[in-house]
Design a protein around this nucleic acid. Structure first.
Lengths: 155, 155
DNA sequence: CTTCATGCAAAACATTTGCAGCTGG
DNA sequence: CCAGCTGCAAATGTTTTGCATGAAG
């Protein structure tokens, strides 16, 4: 799952970053250094970082950035559809800048690691919903919770 | 969908309530009037109430109940597996005492109404996950977001 | 230059907690 | 009786907001 060459990953990061930048430009948002720093972190994060984690990494490259600015930037990216927000019942929020569209996750309930499995068709579930309920579906959220192989071994 | 006779509904509420009570008894938790009031509200709520909503209703029958007690009771019921917690990214939390096990929801993004569609097999998705990832699945969460028929008409 | 973005600190919120006093079993 | 509950109020922790200053375009 998501086993890619380093080269391919680098290309994807670059293209996500460009995508974000051009989205900001087309809506006439300013490209401040702080924003750029946040974009770079979010585009290059392989996992699903929290705002606090983004904030820490951003401070490594642009130390005067404030937490409020990170929040504002993340919210902006979310509104522009360039980042997927993953809020959890315990109040934690994580962000996925690599795949800013609904997709399933598996969360290890022990080590909290999140991975993105490749699953065939949740789409026909959407269709079933539409038929049975008459709702128009805009997006969805599908999370599985369980133990990852290494946590299971250690358990 | 969930179209039942009033009689059937009354029976289900009674059985959920008894189930909760016996669960508390078997673990030697005390049956205080405040707890009973909260149980009754949660067992009889047809929708997916928030803690604040439960609190308001509880105060109608037992006016001195505090918000903290409602929180504590809901948390207890959650730990006992007698209530399903639905936390959303915007920080709102809702509770389902009728079906305290994972099941899909459709949330109207306009009027915020939540309904429980009957969907055939999410189970084979779980199986697919297990095979592809090696995770052990404990539970899951599946939400669809969209417009309900009446909101779509009004839109 | 003008408008928008930033950074700070304070505000806002839902939820949790500490503790003295009460009460179910 | 007395461990476990309750209610209150204060604490918590994250996210949001108001506003003066600064910089992008």
């Amino acid at each position: 799952m998501a086993k890619e060459s380093p080269t391919k990953h680098r290309e994807q990061v670059a293209s996500r970053l460009e995508q974000m930048i051009s989205r900001l430009r087309e809506r006439s948002y300013r490209l401040t250094p702080q924003r750029m720093a946040v974009l770079e972190i979010i585009a290059s994060s392989e996992g699903h970082p929290t705002v606090a984690e983004v904030y820490e990494k951003v401070r490594a490259t642009f130390p005067t950035t404030s937490l409020a600015t990170v929040y504002k930037t993340v919210i902006l990216l979310k509104e522009l559809g360039e980042v997927l927000e993953l809020g959890f019942p315990d109040g934690s929020n994580r962000y996925d800048g690599s795949r800013p569209f609904p997709h399933p996750h598996i969360i290890c309930t022990r080590c909290r690691h999140i991975m993105d499995p490749e699953l065939s068709s949740i789409d026909h579930l959407s269709e079933e919903i539409v038929e049975k309920t008459g709702y128009t579906i805009q997006h969805h959220r599908l999370d599985f919770f369980g133990l990852c192989p290494s946590c299971r071994a250690r358990a």
